[in-house]
């Protein structure tokens, strides 16, 4: 009897509503059926057991066994995760799949495991796709349009650096105050993945949205190392397979949400949406990428620099390859 995996995450507990719960639902089903019930999974969604950062600590302490965590919440335990914030890196969703399923994903997982010591990384599920920028001042299409716009970011120096390098002003604001801040004009705009913009109802208080696709920030799915190593080889293999399917499900649901009225398709009725041309996007990349690399060089260790190099190479390779060709 392998025991129970208590799996905590900070999203709504509806598998058709968000990629995190879709992922855990698939994982739970495949683990329980694949081990004939010798390992079963109990999912605790909606922050019931704490914030994403608390979940990581609880997994490390063996209080719960597994979690999905955002890069922001992982950063305080593993600062090098910040290299994933290289702006304007990917040219499409498929490239993100290739990079995180490939050698770079392996290297990142190994580095996280070495740094933390008490977890096993099982994969990098989709959080809902690329970041977009919304605001109420004017439509942002060109680099110069960022000038003077005040954007809310998380309290994450790299996010602030990216916005500042584009010419915007970046102010951290508590999540609970973002909606009212956007409504009254304390802040002009914000950046988030499209499904978050949708479910937080920001379209009600924002006029323009630009599909900058400037960031992609996956979840990190991890399990307590002592628990995992206490399982039989076949149970471990089942968990690995289930995790892979969990990641696939998170990607499928993310694309479906984007196409539904809970994603981009729905937002288009309430907010003016702009997609960028290749020229507009490379101008922004030209401003933001050097600033970000300088930020990594100044604030992070040598190993972070190596990881960033590997990340850039993997992204370039993925961007260059075309589907079925």
């Amino acid at each position: 009897d392998g025991g129970t995996i208590r799996f905590g995450h900070d999203n709504k507990t509806d598998p058709f509503e968000n990629p995190a719960h879709a992922c855990t639902a698939v994982f739970s089903n495949l683990v329980t059926s694949g081990t004939n019930g010798s390992v079963n999974v109990e999912v605790f969604g909606s922050n019931q057991l704490g914030s994403a950062a608390e979940h990581v600590q609880q997994v490390r302490d063996g209080i719960i066994q597994a979690t999905l965590t955002s890069t922001g919440a992982l950063a305080s335990y593993y600062p090098r995760i910040d290299v994933l914030n290289l702006p304007f890196a990917f040219n499409g969703n498929a490239s993100t799949y290739a990079v995180f399923d490939g050698d770079f994903g392996d290297a990142l997982a190994a580095d996280i495991e070495a740094e933390l010591g008490d977890v096993v990384v099982l994969g990098f599920p989709d959080t809902g796709g690329f970041f977009a920028v919304t605001n109420s001042k004017h439509q942002i299409a060109d680099l110069k349009d960022f000038e003077g716009i005040r954007i809310r970011t998380m309290t994450l120096p790299s996010h602030q650096t990216i916005m500042q390098s584009l010419g915007a002003e970046a102010y951290p604001l508590a999540w609970g105050e973002v909606y009212s801040g956007l409504q009254t004009g304390v802040i002009d705009g914000q950046m988030n993945p499209v499904p978050i913009i949708s479910f937080a109802n920001f379209a009600e208080v924002q006029k323009y949205m630009t599909l900058t696709n400037h960031l992609f920030s996956p979840y990190t799915m991890m399990i307590n190392r002592a628990f995992f190593e206490g399982l039989s080889d076949s149970e471990q293999a089942t968990i690995r397979t289930a995790a892979e399917n969990c990641v696939t499900a998170s990607r499928g649901l993310s694309r479906i949400i984007e196409a539904s009225d809970r994603g981009l398709a729905g937002l288009m009725d309430d907010i003016e949406v702009t997609a960028l041309t290749d020229e507009q996007r490379s101008a922004m990349a030209g401003a933001a990428q050097p600033a970000f690399e300088a930020h990594v060089a100044e604030n992070m260790d040598e190993r972070a620099g190596e990881l960033l190099g590997m990340f850039k190479a993997a992204v370039a390779e993925a961007n260059a390859s075309t589907y079925l060709n």
């Binding site: 005040r150 309290t155 120096p157 602030q160 500042q164 002003e169 970046a170 102010y171 951290p172 604001l173 508590a174 304390v186 802040i187």
Partner: peptide, 15 residues
């Protein structure tokens, strides 16, 4: 005051 007047964009007052 920073957001309204100084524009330093300090990352730390909220935290």
């Amino acid at each position: 005051a920073d957001r309204y007047y100084f524009h330093w964009q300090l990352p730390w007052p909220e935290v």
